[in-house]
Design a binder for these strands. Sequence first.
DNA 1: ATAGGGTTAG
Length: 713
Amino acid sequence: MHAAGLQCCMVLLQLKWERRSAIAGPDLPIPNAMRLPAILADPRRLRRVLSFPGAAPATLARVHAVLIVSASHHLLPGLATAYARASALDAAEATLAIPASASPSSIAAWNALLSAHTRRGAPGEVLRVFRALLPATRPDSTTFTLALSACARLENLAAAEVIRDRASAAGYGKDVFVCSALLHLYSRRGAMDDAVKVFEGMPSKDRVAWSTMVSGFINAGRPVEALDMYRMMRESGVEGDEVVMVGILQACAAIREVHVGASVHGYLSRHGMRMDVVTTTSLVDMYAKNGRFDVACRLFGLMPCKNAISWSALISGFAQNGRADKALDLFREMQTTGLQPDAGAVVSALLACADMGLLKLGKSIHGFILRRLEMDCIRGTALIDMYSKCGSLVSAQMLFNRVGSRDLVLWNAMIACCGTHGRGDDALDLFHRLNEAGVKPDHATFASLLSALSHCGLVEEGKFWFDRMINEFSIQPSEKHYVCIVDLLARSGRVEEANDLLTSVQTEPTIAIWVALLSGCLNNKKLELGESIAEKILQLQPDDVGVLALVSNLYAVAKKWDMVREVRKLMKDSGSKKVPGYSLVEVRGTRHSFLMEDQSHPQYQEILKVVAKLDSEMRKMGYVPKTEFVYHDLDEHVKEQLLSYHSERLAIAFALLNTSPGTRLVIIKNLRVCGNCHEAIKYISKIADREIVVRDAKRFHHFKDGACSCGDY
DNA sequence: ATAGGGTTAG
């Protein structure tokens, strides 16, 4: 007994020293006097020891010894709580596990332990401890809430249901905290119907419950309902805070509601809300996704501390809005600040590489992912897409075969890749493998598959799978699918059949669907039907130059020169929507861009010479320029010259000047390659002994030895 | 003494 008293004195001294050294620093000498009275008989003082904040585990171990020796079991839960606060979780659990410490009040100690495991990010431990406490004591609201929150993190629905039923039985079925944890669990799994059921059953809904519903709808890809939730929250008299606002900003980013987003921005400022990294990043993201780069960049520049996610948000904004150049500039700048790009930044950079055909940079990012991050479905899909769009079908296939687990989006990307590279049979093969793997195809799978089949002339297969998509897979065809099936039929000359299909459908065809049909009419010289389709397209008032060009070409072939003039005028007037045709080529790791008749390039004179030399050699081999679509009122010689100055021809000539024979050239064009250039490049591939890959707005054309592997033009 | 928030692929 005397020994224990001595221990206790030492403990108190130790505690005082710990507190003083926390203030004064570690150099404080340890006091050696132990003249304090024995406190063993005074439970209040012992309690004070236990509630001492910041006590070291070693000190608590000495208290522990005292409690055991003095048989003060009623103080064991308090000791366990102190252990848990001091991060000595094993000791806390061991203390609680002995039967002597079981008491109705011990639940607070168990909760402290669960809470410590939660803070450490160990939800599995939370569940294990929860199961261990059950025989010892009755869980309360805090216990159930922590356990359910752990289930949400583990996405363990089965465990959650057991806990939910126990909570109900214990009378916590309507508890705000318990219900909020349940809401979070359901919304994480995308089970919003279940979440709504719980939410509607809640007698009182606080801000957290509402905001859980808001972010639940966001995560489920239902931004409109998220905004509805917010509206209802305000109507019920609950004020929003910054967490709710982050959800609203995500909704605004998703549905391009920049005005609502800006008003949220104003609301945050007016109410003096904390503009932390998360809130500001959401604002930057919302503005950038909506193309308001000025505001996004200003806010970003003003951020006192930015993390990888803030950078990623801005980079992705640029990458997704056709500003690949700026996205890559920022990607580089991010690295100079010493931040390692995270998954988000890397994927956005890959998107930008794909956009501009920057294979070298894309490959180096692939290396970075393998070295510093790890491969997952999202990264893998972005890489496959990058390789595909940079013309490397083989690299895309190799990567696809190496990825360990494949989700639907990854399969879809690979099927689309085969399609754009003219491999309809491979796309079909992948589709079968996908089904065998037990993955359920969706609308995007069928869109890619049908498009692949259509470009390879696999008409019967296309029709077969279009029907099965509707009848066996219960997927209602969307505009995209109609475009594919019409294109499939019309491309192979079955324009009447395609037209009949459209008349049998209740919904009114869109411009894109008519365009597929018209393009088939033009290629197969079905001018009568073509003119009626052209009329329908003009009635829909298209403002896309490509569409108008197609209509104009149809009229040109039909020799309806009045209509040609009229449509040309429309093309001129469509003004702002006009995107100039350009081609990009990567030569020795640097990209070069060319516009039609572009004279700004330093090597322009040499390029012209190459173009002219190629032209004359091609003619000797039998090439005849097709000038039927060019303005009818121009001189024939000028028409031919206009054709040879198309941007893809300039880009190829430039690449020939700067590479040696046998090199593979990849040209990226933003619009469709015209039929004439397509023909000309076949000849060029033979004359220059180059494999030439051209990616246009739709797909790839592989030219080699005077032939094109996508011979459906 | 417990519940809710930001970027990324087809």
